[in-house]
Design a binder for these strands. Structure first.
Lengths: 203, 203
DNA sequence: CGCTCGATTGATAGTGATCAATCCGAGTGG
DNA sequence: CCACTCGGATTGATCACTATCAATCGAGCG
């Protein structure tokens, strides 16, 4: 929660597909998703896109080491985004011990998540990646069984290092195994345990 | 440099292959490599290993969000390792603004590196991964053209999400293209530009 | 000397990318 | 209102890349 740490601007409203900042833009602000979803992505020289992460309500993004963003950030669907000057955060972190602690633990947690994602990218099969992805999304969107994925198959593919066709096939494979049901972009988890068994990466 | 930030213990000497800490151990210390090389790795339930990173002289490792290590850390070759209580670091960071800034920028930089590695894992071919790996190692071991890789092909494979055989084949492919020369585990870069062209992931 | 481990190379199989066609829903303009 | 279009999703066919299985070779070591 950014507001606990620094004064935030009133949330700005975006439509789906809007660009919040572009690769190489100056990284002077930090953002928090109030509602909706945001993705951060990087484009390689050869046009290959990598989606670094999806951010939902309560998530913070836009913090980067150098002066410039290494990723672009776009809304996946209509969203409201609060922002805060980076210098403000830094000043507050220096002055207020609680803010510093919160920020520090947040940084560590995102490093941890990046590590888990690296495991997934390095070693999991397509179906395992999708199973993990669905469990991750269900948890982050705090949905029990049924939830709507706002992002396209292309977004999922670029997040998991797959092609969109393979993402489709993995969905149908899970559906054929009766682990999930799908209806457009909304997913119902039928057998949580079955998905968990496929997500065998966590130690 | 850990010593600038907190009192460190005198460096401990390890042989190659020693375990510094194991997965699930309590994460009460932070470490700095003084000499040699360390790898951090995670084992999945099914035995698949993922090497999260290699650390050389000057690198810090062992900092994790929860109380327990999610990775194990082992020496790749004989090494000297300094350590420091985590609580000490935290106390110093609270008290000294310069320490806090240094630590913070260090955290952000490692997040950035993790992001770059995710791109590599997600989208690069085997030869591209090896090309990038060699450039990364040449830079981090501050070697100009010729350097010895202390880690095995298995370590490299688990770092890049490949099999050891594929790593071997990628090395011979690069050798056949006259981009590198190899002699056991030591590598000579013959055409830096050729390798850079393969490493087309950075934006 | 024989052992084991790591590296390399070959042969084969499997997984996912790519090319291609179809289908569907939403938006658009006649 | 309906034909039209367009992007996303799905499925099929084929191909490329890498994993896997297997054999060999060499170095280090008891």
């Amino acid at each position: 929660m950014l507001a606990r740490m620094a004064p935030v601007s009133p949330p700005a409203a975006f439509a789906g597909g809007d660009t919040i900042y572009a690769q190489e833009d100056a990284a002077d602000f930090i953002y928090e998703v109030i509602e909706g979803m945001v993705r951060t992505a990087r484009l390689g020289m050869d046009g290959r896109r990598i989606v670094h992460g999806f951010f939902v309500a309560g998530d913070i993004f836009g913090l980067e080491p150098n002066g410039a963003h290494s990723c672009s950030a776009e809304t996946v669907c209509a969203a409201r985004i609060a922002s805060c000057e980076r210098s403000q955060i830094e000043r507050r972190a220096m002055a207020d011990r609680a803010v510093a602690t919160e920020f520090w633990s947040w940084l560590l947690k995102s490093a941890e998540q990046a590590g888990a994602h690296m495991c997934l990218l390095a070693r999991a099969t397509a179906v395992e990646k999708i199973a993990h992805f669905l469990l991750e999304m269900a948890e982050r969107m705090s949905a029990n069984r049924r939830f709507a994925l706002p992002m396209s198959r292309y977004d999922i593919a670029d997040y998991l290092g797959l092609s969109s066709e393979t993402v489709s096939r993995a969905f149908t494979a899970l559906r054929d195994r009766q682990l999930i049901a799908t209806e457009g972009r909304s997913v119902t988890i039928l057998k949580l345990e079955g998905l968990r068994r496929l997500d065998g990466l966590a130690a």
